[in-house]
Design a protein around this nucleic acid. Sequence first.
DNA 1: CCTTAATTAGACCAATTAGTCTAGCCATAG
DNA 2: CTATGGCTAGACTAATTGGTCTAATTAAGG
Lengths: 194, 194
Amino acid sequence: MKKQPTREKLLDITFDEVYIHGYTATSVDTILKKAGIPKGSMYHHFKGKKELVLAMVQERLFPKMELFFDFEKKEGATVTDALRSTFAGVSRNKPLIIYGCPLYRLMVELSPVDETFDTVLSTKAMQIQDNLALLLQKGIEDGEFNETLSSKDFAAYIQESTWGVLSLSPSLSSSSHFIKHSKFILETLAIYKN
Amino acid sequence: MKKQPTREKLLDITFDEVYIHGYTATSVDTILKKAGIPKGSMYHHFKGKKELVLAMVQERLFPKMELFFDFEKKEGATVTDALRSTFAGVSRNKPLIIYGCPLYRLMVELSPVDETFDTVLSTKAMQIQDNLALLLQKGIEDGEFNETLSSKDFAAYIQESTWGVLSLSPSLSSSSHFIKHSKFILETLAIYKN
DNA sequence: CCTTAATTAGACCAATTAGTCTAGCCATAG
DNA sequence: CTATGGCTAGACTAATTGGTCTAATTAAGG
């Protein structure tokens, strides 16, 4: 087993720790110990804790988000189908179901308190939302939905209510629970079907 | 202005601090300094930080939640009206709109990591959800909704999607945004109207 | 091989953390 | 007035925090 480059290893461990314990509750020393990397190395690669986590957000968290929430419309399929398959993918993702959306959890912790994180995280959130809105817009243009559907507003609705279920207490979370939730969303969307 | 009893003052300040900064990022010393209360007094009233915050949860946070989310059906009104008025109340509550639901935020931070908090917070969450389910059930019995509505599932749906919008980044939150969200929920509910 | 720069290593530091402890204050019951 | 018990006061502690610093090691280019 080839040794993983220091920087990459640090980003991996940082993701794991921050995902579950949050930014503040994760100490640099813990990360270092779990990674088996001495302090000097870390501070050679990153200016400090905040920069390490910010890099982790860009290089680990965001790519994962793109994986989870890609709303690609498959050839010939409807927008509803594309959404259904995204939801199904999420429901099969164990960590996402148990611990919730890492982007949202970090946003809940840090947005009210740290401007840098707020900007970075909400920008990405809006970007994902915009993709979703684009998909819905396509549905309108294709005649799947009628003009009374506001693609922007509904994209926000989907994103935020999905965040809400996902980031529940692990003791209340399950994939079947999530599936029920996503059915309600699809029912609402169906109101706007032509 | 009469001096507030030590214990009560501590609970007030603790709520403010934990609400915005979270449990971990709030230090005992900060609370003490803001409250102008010496350490000995605090440790006389509470065994430690965790117990202080747990008491705050019971005596400040939970009562506030009951205020925010009371789903009382007014004389003669429909369940839909009761919900609409609850949403309106929430949308007028500035801190709730800006910083989100304090119960949910604490749950997001601590549930995966602390069993005591998880139990206390999710029990309360379920209690509120049960009240909401009861209201919906009444709607079914009154003939406002048909039998295909699962009051339990829909109550969860309302609660969790509402949490999702509320606890967004302050920079993305506004009462008008929340109102749009609540309209979608009511539209979904309307599907089940008789 | 030798020089140079990148990286590793970890001892060290000041500040902050939650929590302890003892001395004294102060209200009230006798 | 005095004795008692609840409460206040804050100095102190041990552990942990994020961060610095310098020396040693390693890798790469000539």
